[in-house]
């Protein structure tokens, strides 16, 4: 049996989720920043974390984007293989959702052609990642991504002999080089293995994992904890002004890779960690 789904519903969902994600901080993010605020020992860092918490409330109260950089709009769509899409081109529908969110939600238009720097005026096109999955559902996640943090992301094709230590050093080095630029406290999405592009996408997907949840594999979970400690020991602090809170979490996942390779990718996420999901 196939189920029909009109792409107009996807358009509307993209619009709504994009606006919501920009305005309302998720409960896991609030809890993580609150906990960091309570733990923080440096006054300047405490002040900044306090402002970040206050900002979340004011954004919600006033219906304003919590950060003015409402990002490029990254959309993850898992489509059931028994689903039949009707009502027109799926890509157009997703882009219409983004354009409407930008206009109707008063989001900032930041999308432009890379070399001529011509702004598209409405944040289109979306960055759309599609997956075909079993069933007849459609699962949509909208994750606007600001570029202060995206710019601090790094991919490295390591040597297999570099091993786990080499990967860990690369991750800590990425944070050290980023310093205050990606609006710490940050979340590091890490992909290890695969090819260059599958590794990068895995790292991005790791940013969708709820805060407070560890990797299922105990080996990776231990690595996440160790890295979080090493990164916070750098004392970069909120906004790079010094302090105990540089990262809220490190989320790691692996993919099988080639006998000759060891790719690792860090996708840097600022404290404006925004993603909203819905099943259609």
């Amino acid at each position: 049996m196939t189920r029909e789904l009109n792409v107009a519903l996807i358009e509307q969902a993209v619009r709504d989720l994009y606006i919501e994600a920009c305005i309302h901080a998720s409960p896991d993010l609030r809890a993580a920043v609150r906990a960091a605020h309570a733990r923080e020992s440096k006054p300047v860092a405490q002040e900044v974390l306090g402002q970040i918490l206050q900002n979340m409330d004011l954004a919600t109260e006033n219906g304003l984007p919590s950060c003015q950089d409402t990002g490029l709009c990254v959309v993850f769509l898992d489509l059931g293989q028994d689903l039949h899409l009707i009502g027109g081109d799926l890509n157009d529908a997703v882009n219409r959702g983004v354009a409407r969110a930008c206009l109707e939600g008063r989001l900032r238009a930041s999308s432009l052609t890379p070399l001529t720097r011509q702004n598209t005026g409405n944040n289109t096109p979306a960055v759309l990642h599609l997956r075909i999955v079993p069933g007849d559902g459609a699962h949509l996640t909208v994750a606007p991504k600001g570029f202060g943090s995206e710019n601090m992301s790094r991919l490295k094709m390591l040597n297999p002999s570099d091993g786990e230590e080499g990967v860990k050093d690369f991750i800590v080095e990425t944070m050290r080089l980023a310093g205050g630029k990606p609006c710490p406290p940050v979340i590091l999405g890490v992909g290890i293995g695969g090819t260059a592009e599958s590794c990068a996408l895995l790292a991005k997907r790791m940013l969708l994992r709820p805060l407070g949840q560890r990797a299922e594999d105990p080996r990776l979970a231990r690595m996440e904890e160790e890295l979080l400690e090493r990164i916070n020991a750098l004392q970069i602090g909120p906004m790079g002004l010094g302090g105990d809170t540089t990262a809220l979490a490190v989320h790691i996942a692996e993919l099988p890779t080639h006998i000759a390779g060891l790719p690792a990718m860090v996708n840097m996420q600022c404290h404006a960690s925004r993603h909203r999901e819905m099943t259609l």
Partner: peptide, 13 residues
């Protein structure tokens, strides 16, 4: 001076 990045709503007020 450093303002808090990402605190766009607070600063707008």
């Amino acid at each position: 001076f450093a303002a808090t990045g990402g605190a766009g709503a607070l600063l707008a007020m």
